[in-house]
């Protein structure tokens, strides 16, 4: 299980209804079901992933997130999760707004492009960073909308989204990441809601 997912399990109330956007092979939803008794639905676009998730007894709908969530009623889930997919959306701002229309709460995780390694790479080499963590080159990457921790919090402020909690994962220890997230967090994790 990816580290960011382990961090967010505790934000899911037992027995709650969870919508996982870009749920992959459903491992996270399965864990939520098994550990938290959560009733999960996943959205996934890749059919091989979808088949693996369906095989775990999960409800998975094939859907393109860039087309929105219009088919999901307002406030029909307790929590909507978008793990490591924000940066691949055509309209991250609209997806964020949709998440908090469909769910009472949202959980977003993304790779922080403000991480010092990204900055160093760009500064010293003058080229877009390629690393083990972000292995794509600029022209073939699905990650078309990178942001930093500060960028994301700015977007939340603009949209009137309240940050209930945040957590940061660093490359090694997370102590530095929590102290100076915009510089040291490799993955940023947010628990969000929209005040009524």
């Amino acid at each position: 299980m990816r580290q960011d997912l382990t961090h967010i399990v505790r934000w899911i109330d037992p027995g709650s209804r969870v919508l996982d956007l870009g749920c992959g092979d459903g491992e996270f939803l399965k864990r939520l079901r098994d550990e938290r008794g959560a009733a999960g639905t996943g959205i996934e676009i890749d059919q091989d992933n979808l088949t693996r998730a369906v095989g775990k007894g999960l409800n998975i709908v094939q859907q393109d997130l860039d087309q929105g969530l219009a088919n999901f009623p307002d406030q029909s889930f307790d929590t909507v999760v978008l793990a490591h997919a924000l940066q691949a959306m055509h309209y991250p701002d609209r997806v964020l707004a949709e998440m908090l229309r469909v769910g009472r709460q949202g959980i977003v995780t993304f790779p922080n492009f403000g991480h010092w390694r990204c900055r160093l790479h760009l500064t010293t080499r003058g080229r877009m960073p390629v690393s083990r963590f972000l292995p794509y080159r600029w022209y073939d990457t699905p990650n078309i909308h990178f942001c930093t921790v500060r960028d994301f919090e700015q977007l939340c402020a603009e949209q009137g989204v309240r940050i209930l909690a945040r957590d940061m994962v660093g490359a090694g220890s997370s102590m530095l990441a929590r102290a100076w997230p915009n510089l040291f967090a490799q993955t940023a994790i947010y628990h969000l809601t929209r005040p009524a």
Binding site: L50, V54, N59, I60, V61, Q63, N71, P73, S76
Partner: peptide, 14 residues
């Protein structure tokens, strides 16, 4: 599928 989702039934779709 959309009707099932709106009716909060359990559904998978591909």
């Amino acid at each position: 599928v959309d009707a099932l989702i709106a009716a909060r039934r359990e559904v998978s779709y591909a």
